[in-house]
Write a protein that binds this DNA or RNA. Structure first.
Length: 586
RNA sequence: GCAUUCGUAGCUCAACUGGAUAGAGCUUCUGACUUCGGAUCAGAAGGUUACAGGUUCAAAUCCUGUCGAAUGCACCA
């Protein structure tokens, strides 16, 4: 709907001001329904460039604009806003379309892009913790969203399966492995080994030296150490898969850091050969090339009023590469393998400097791909407790993700049991699973990703406010209507008459679904979609209070059933794009 | 010290990236035919968008400064 108006408006602007750029001529929903349904403020900008009276310019554009087939006569308001009011008949046609096979209020993109999304990235031998949920939920939602819009999406779990921690782990594995607890909880046991040996190494330099030697043996291909390392990866992956199974998250590829080991030496050589990196204090580092404004340059930092080097290490003094090197090799592999238009990294905000350096170094390494492969660091804030500090258990441990999901389901089960004690237990368990996991994910997706947010069970599982259970409840109510309506619920797309204010309000919200999808995808912010779904659920609740469905008859009943059906479809699809399931009953 | 990101109602968060009178939920108060699922809805109260300047027809949003917070700054990722 807004796209149609926008195209018409662009055409009118082109006729009135042939030299004007049309990229800013956009149509947006009105912030306040009193102004209308859609607005454009583009004329004000165009008038300003030409030093014209904006209201006069708007009048001139309107003379070339004919949208009588879908809108009332557009109005000029305020400083030069154009306001559009949609005709109910046009709205009825718009909402009939998905019932006849059209996409659900969105348009697939005209030019699909190839998008690699790198997210989740747990570390081998460490249980996934609460911090992983945000990357996982965000990355999965972005993948689903972009796929739905028609892009070619490739998801890659860049797990941490290589690095110095394996020296310590191997010492622990060889000296104090508890095979029984390895059977029951492999990640827990490996975590215990790691902590135990770390403590021992702090107290005894001999242990640290032993760890260093085990690492060297692993890196030089010692069969025993390689086997232990492989076991640790396999055991970890089993537990990762269990969590991903619960979360409903799938990856196209799981290419861990070790996958790139064979390339690292060559990457370092190439960077040195091209003068991008050089030796410094025994290590090999990337320094500034000095072309950027110092403030923008990720390899410069101000010290005592002077700009000083802030290099990125790509090879340590001991000859080993590190994560910057791996990330460069990874980019090279991704380009060679998929030729992506975009690569999206979903990590916490603490890695901003690393990615600025990585992107800069990559562009110097492969300047020819500067435009061809766009790199995005989609970062997010941390999850905190009531005190504003990172969320920890009472004893100060990091909170394990499996435990969070367990508790969410337990709490949801208690609620389901108290609200619906007559349902069989198996069904209440299933409700608890869908509600619990959905609540945890939604709590991560609905705030602006860049802000820290306070973890709260009560808030995420509440049936009020912007939560997953509230949206799932709205869906369940809709399904209940159709259970009651039974076989008489045949929907007639040709018999839609929108009259009641809450019918119109709901219909207008429905047709904006695509707008929220596009905003969420283009800004990598699923919270735009969350907000839309919450507002949709609110509009539906209002409609549902004021417009009886099953007690009405004829065209009115058909119209209201259509609105219920489409609201249900959008809620289900929208939640699905967020990786959240819905229930027929809850 | 420098950099990044922030500072919005008592609390937790929004605000479609420069648009019109800054919105929700929680909390408090008042209402809604024994209810198409009341796990809901309607209404009231609550704001100098940290502070001070500036740019603009228009600023929570952009620029400058001050105060405060989180995070990061060479061999962990």
């Amino acid at each position: 709907m807004h796209i149609y108006i926008q195209q018409k408006l662009q055409e009118a602007v082109r006729q009135t001001f042939p030299d004007a750029s049309l990229t800013n001529v956009v149509v947006r929903p009105c912030p306040d329904p009193r102004f209308g349904d859609y607005q454009s403020n583009a004329i004000m900008g165009i008038a300003k460039e030409r030093k014209l009276n904006p209201r006069q310019a708007a009048t001139d554009v309107l003379a070339h604009l004919d949208v009588t087939d879908c809108c009332e006569t557009p109005e000029i308001a305020g400083a030069g806003f154009l306001n559009f009011r949609v005709k109910p008949e046009a709205l009825a046609r718009a909402i009939a379309a998905p019932l006849e096979g059209a996409p659900l209020f969105f348009q697939p993109v005209a030019k699909p892009r190839t998008i690699v999304i790198d997210f989740s990235s747990p570390n081998v031998a460490k249980p996934m913790h609460i911090g992983h949920i945000r990357s996982t939920a965000l990355g999965d939602a972005l993948a689903r969203l972009n796929r739905k819009l028609g892009h070619r999406v490739i998801t890659d779990n860049h797990i941490g399966d290589w690095g110095t921690q394996f020296g310590l782990l191997t010492v622990g594995w060889k000296s104090q492995l508890d095979r029984a607890s390895l059977e029951t909880d492999a990640l827990g046991e490996m975590e215990r080994l790691y902590k135990s040996v770390t403590a021992a190494a702090d107290a005894d330099p001999g242990v640290r030296e032993a760890a260093r030697q085990e690492l060297v043996k692993l890196q030089s291909g010692d069969p025993t150490n390689l086997e232990i390392w492989g076991r640790m990866i396999d055991l970890s992956q089993v537990q990762f898969d269990e969590i991903y199974g619960r979360l409903g998250v799938q990856f196209d590829h799981t290419l861990g850091e070790s996958f790139y080991n064979p390339e690292l030496k060559r990457v370092v050589q190439e960077l040195v050969g091209k003068g991008i990196a050089r030796e410094s204090q025994g290590a090999v580092c990337v320094f500034s090339e000095g072309v950027l404004n110092p403030k923008e340059d990720p390899f410069l930092v101000q010290k005592d009023g002077e700009w000083s080097p802030n290099p990125a290490l790509i090879q340590k003094a001991d000859g080993a590469a590190n994560y910057a090197t791996t990330d460069l090799a990874t980019l090279e592999y991704r380009w060679n393998t998929w030729q992506p238009d975009d690569v999206i990294y979903v990590t916490d905000g603490r890695q901003q400097l690393h990615f600025r350096q990585l992107f800069n170094a990559w562009q110097r390494w492969h300047p020819e791909l500067r435009e061809g492969m766009q790199l995005h660091h989609v970062w997010f804030g941390s999850i905190t407790g009531d005190d504003g500090k990172p969320y920890k258990t009472r004893s100060g441990e990091t909170v394990k993700l499996a435990g969070v999901l367990d508790e969410a389901q337990e709490r949801a089960f208690a609620v389901a049991s108290s609200k619906n004690p007559d349902l069989p237990e198996a069904q209440r368990r299933e409700i608890a699973r869908v509600v619990g996991v959905g609540a945890v994910k939604y709590a991560d997706l609905s705030p602006n990703r860049q802000s820290d947010y306070v973890f709260s069970w009560d808030k995420m599982l509440s049936l009020q406010g912007n939560t997953a259970p509230y949206l799932q409840y709205a869906y369940a109510r809709i399904r209940s209507v159709f259970r009651k309506a039974g076989a008489e619920a045949g929907l007639n797309p040709g018999l839609i008459q929108l009259r009641h204010a809450d019918e119109l309000g709901l219909a207008k919200r429905l047709v904006r679904f695509g707008l929220s999808m596009e905003a969420a995808a283009s800004e990598h912010r699923p919270n735009y979609l969350c907000l839309y779904l919450y507002e949709l659920a609110g509009d539906f609740a209002r409609f549902y209070e004021s417009c009886p469905v099953l007690k009405s008859e004829g065209a009115e009943r058909n119209t209201r059933l259509v609105l219920c059906e489409l609201t249900g479809r959008v809620l289900k699809e929208g939640l699905n794009l967020l990786g959240i399931e819905v229930l027929e009953q809850m």
